[in-house]
């Protein structure tokens, strides 16, 4: 009597493509470095390095092995949490990244916790009261904010809240032993910057998704059955809005993870983004690889999550013929 629902199959297939993508991306991140013109060791140590130091450097980073061996070695290490050594200061990258990554995810999470519910509620409200004052205000305000570079928003916030009102610090200095309250206070301005920007994108996308939905014939039919407006929205519109809204959220969380790079630099916040930018400037290849892998993996996983929510919430798949 139980026919196998296609859902597990679809989820498995989606997971498999997700993993495959991750594998390909890791390969790109690794092999991109191989395209480097010239020799990494000379590039890092400079033209003045003696042949002996160059040889020692190559030995230490295994540069004499064939690239395929080094890729597998790197990938195997990455899976077990070992990303090798920094070329600039020869410290283990995993240690370097651990704190930084925690800080970055903390900041992104902080912003997400505020932005996601607010944006979804306001976006839905704008769609429901289309053409109202609220809607027009939201649409103009969001258009303005998405036009602004992250650092412009950040500096305006600094100018108002740090320099003029002196309510919050302009530099988000955090240290490992800090309590949660102090940490939330110290990172308030960077979090607020990201909230504003992500909310703008999210509200526009949520509004568009809901407006599309409300124009569907079955929503009109519900009205013609004399169902209360509130119930039409709660029972007929929102269950079908889960997939589009999940996509919007995942897209924006991914955006948050990446947008954090700029905000970290503005507020001199010791996160992964800051480290990545510094390492790019120093051409510390191995650290760049490690940081890129973390960012890319997060991004891929978030998109994967959105797709899976979409599969699970599709009634046609939940109840096959």
């Amino acid at each position: 009597m139980t026919r196998l629902s296609p859902i597990p199959r679809l989820i498995l297939r989606r997971l498999a493509t997700g993993l495959l993508t991750l594998l390909i991306v890791s390969a790109i991140i690794f092999w991109a470095i191989e395209l480097l013109p010239g020799d990494i060791a000379t590039e890092i140590l400079g033209q003045s390095a003696t042949p002996e130091t160059l040889a020692a450097f190559r030995e230490r980073f295994g540069l004499n092995d064939p690239p395929m061996i080094r890729y597998l070695h790197w990938l195997g290490g990455a899976l077990t949490g070992d990303l090798g050594l920094s070329m600039a200061n020869q410290r283990p990258i995993a240690d370097l990244l651990a704190d930084r990554a925690t800080n970055t995810f903390f900041l992104a999470g902080y912003a997400a916790v505020i932005a996601v519910p607010l944006a979804v509620v306001l976006g839905v409200a704008a769609a429901l009261y289309r053409g109202s004052m609220l809607d027009r205000f939201i649409s103009n305000a969001t258009l303005t904010v998405i036009s602004f570079p992250e650092y412009f928003v950040a500096y305006i916030l600094i100018l108002i809240f740090a320099v003029q009102l002196q309510w919050f610090p302009s530099l988000a200095a955090v240290s490992p032993g800090m309590g949660l309250g102090a940490r939330l206070y110290a990172t308030f301005l960077p979090a607020l910057t990201m909230v504003l920007i992500v909310m703008a994108h999210m509200m526009r996308m949520t509004r568009a998704a809901i407006v599309n939905l409300l124009a569907l014939p079955y929503v009109e039919m519900a009205h013609l059955k004399g169902v209360k407006r509130r119930r039409v929205i709660a029972v007929h519109a929102l269950p079908n809005a889960v997939a589009p809204i999940a996509t919007v959220i995942a897209l924006n969380l991914a955006y948050l993870i990446v947008g954090v790079v700029l905000v970290e630099v503005v507020f001199v916040y010791p996160g992964l983004g800051q480290l990545l930018v510094d390492s790019v400037a120093k051409r510390d290849v191995t650290v760049v690889q490690g940081a890129c892998l973390i960012f890319a993996a997060t991004y891929i996983l978030l998109n994967l999550a959105a797709d899976i929510v979409g599969i699970v919430s599709n009634p046609r798949l939940l109840h096959p013929r």
Partner: peptide
């Protein structure tokens, strides 16, 4: 599948 900024940073390295 790779965020643009991250990809750009990688290539610019």
């Amino acid at each position: 599948a790779i965020p643009s900024l991250i990809f750009a940073l990688l290539i610019l390295t």
